[in-house]
C-alpha cells in the first residue's frame, strides 16, 4: 500500500483539521498527486494518511481582487492556461502551464503542488518570481503572506510549518504596457524537465523599458532573479543588441550545476538563449 487512509476535505477548515488530527502519523495533503503519488510509489516518501484537498473551494479558482490576481493553490494547469484572466494579465503563467508535462499532467497537476514540491526546475515558478508574487499560507490559527522569493528558502526547502497549507498565490496585475513571456529549453517538447528556463516581465513606456524582471529556472538551488539582466534592460529601448547584453548579464547571475540533463557550461550557454528569447517575446507583447 502506498498509504493507509485517504480522507477528502470539503472545506479549508476541514482540510486543516484533518492535517493535524492524526497524532504521530505522517499526513500529507494531495491535490494533483503527480509528484506525490510517484514519490510514494517509488518509496522516496512515505505517508500514513493522504488528505485530498483537490475539491476544497477556498483553494480553487482564479479571481481578481483589489487589483490583484488570486490563483487558488489547487487550481490545475489546464485551468490556468485556459483562464481569460491569466491570458489577459499574466500570459507568462499560461505559457508556462502549457509547457508542463503534457495534457494529462496539466489536467491533474496544480500550481500549489509545483510551489510546494519546490524543484529548482519547476516550470510555473519562474513566472511567479517575475510577477513578484506572494504565497499565502494558512494554518489552524492564522494566515501568512510571504514573497515567493522568501518562501523558497533553498533546494527543495520551503517556509511551511507542520499543519499549514499553501492557500493561494497573489500578485498585482502588471501595469499597462507590460509584456510577459516564458521560454523553456528541455530535451524534448513535452514530458520533459527544464534544462534551463527563463520568465520575463517588461513594461514599456514611450518605447523605453521602464520596468523589468527576469527570473531563471534550473540554474541554482532555487529559482532566481537576475538583477544584472534587469539593470541592463531598464531605461533602454528594445533592440537585438539589448537582448544580447541582457542574455550575457543573466549568465553572470546563473550558478548552474552538472547533472544528467546537461553540463554547467551548456546551462550557462542556455541561460543566454532562454533569456534573449523570453525578453524579445515579452517586449513584442508589451508593444
Amino acid at each position: 500500500m502506498l498509504y493507509r487512509k485517504y480522507e477528502v476535505a470539503q472545506t479549508l477548515p476541514e482540510a486543516l483539521s484533518l492535517l493535524s488530527s492524526h497524532n504521530g502519523a505522517v499526513v500529507r495533503p494531495v491535490a494533483g498527486g503527480t509528484d506525490l503519488i510517484l514519490q510514494l510509489h517509488e518509496r522516496i516518501l512515505s505517508a500514513d494518511v493522504l488528505v485530498d484537498i483537490s475539491r476544497v473551494p477556498e483553494l480553487r479558482g482564479i479571481r481578481l481582487e483589489n487589483g490583484q490576481l488570486v490563483i487558488g493553490a489547487a487550481t490545475t494547469y489546464t485551468e490556468i492556461s485556459r483562464s481569460d484572466l491569466v491570458l489577459k494579465n499574466a500570459f507568462v503563467l499560461a505559457e508556462a502551464s502549457k509547457k508542463i508535462g503534457a495534457v494529462q499532467i496539466q489536467n491533474m497537476a496544480t500550481l500549489g503542488g509545483n510551489i510546494g514540491n519546490a524543484s529548482p526546475a519547476a516550470d510555473a515558478i519562474p513566472g511567479l518570481y517575475a510577477l513578484q508574487a506572494d504565497v499565502v499560507v494558512c494554518g489552524p490559527n492564522a494566515e501568512r503572506r510571504i514573497p515567493i522569493t522568501e518562501f523558497h528558502q533553498g533546494y527543495r526547502k520551503i517556509d511551511l510549518n507542520p499543519g499549514e497549507l499553501i492557500k493561494e498565490i497573489r500578485f498585482a496585475i502588471p501595469a499597462e504596457g507590460t509584456g510577459t513571456a516564458f521560454y523553456k529549453y528541455a530535451l524534448r517538447k513535452s514530458q520533459a524537465i527544464s534544462v534551463v528556463d527563463a520568465a520575463v516581465c517588461v513594461q514599456l513606456s514611450d518605447g523605453v523599458i521602464k520596468h523589468a524582471t527576469v527570473a531563471l529556472g534550473a540554474v541554482a538551488p532555487t529559482i532566481i532573479r537576475s538583477p544584472a539582466a534587469e539593470s541592463v534592460l531598464i531605461g533602454e529601448p528594445p533592440s537585438e543588441d539589448l537582448f544580447d547584453r541582457a542574455a550575457e548579464a543573466a549568465c553572470q547571475d546563473a550558478r548552474p550545476i552538472d547533472d544528467i540533463r546537461g553540463s554547467a557550461a551548456f546551462r550557462k550557454y542556455l541561460v543566454g538563449v532562454c533569456t534573449s528569447h523570453a525578453v524579445r517575446s515579452a517586449c513584442e507583447r508589451a508593444a
Binding site: 498527486g33 503527480t34 503519488i37 489546464t78 499532467i105 489536467n107
Partner: peptide, 18 residues
C-alpha cells in the same frame, strides 16, 4: 491514460480514492 470526469488523466499517478 483514462478519462476521469471527462478529462484525460494518468491512472498511475491518481490515487484510487480520487
Amino acid at each position: 491514460t483514462v478519462h476521469l470526469d471527462g478529462q484525460s488523466v494518468l491512472a498511475c499517478l491518481t490515487p484510487m480514492e480520487r
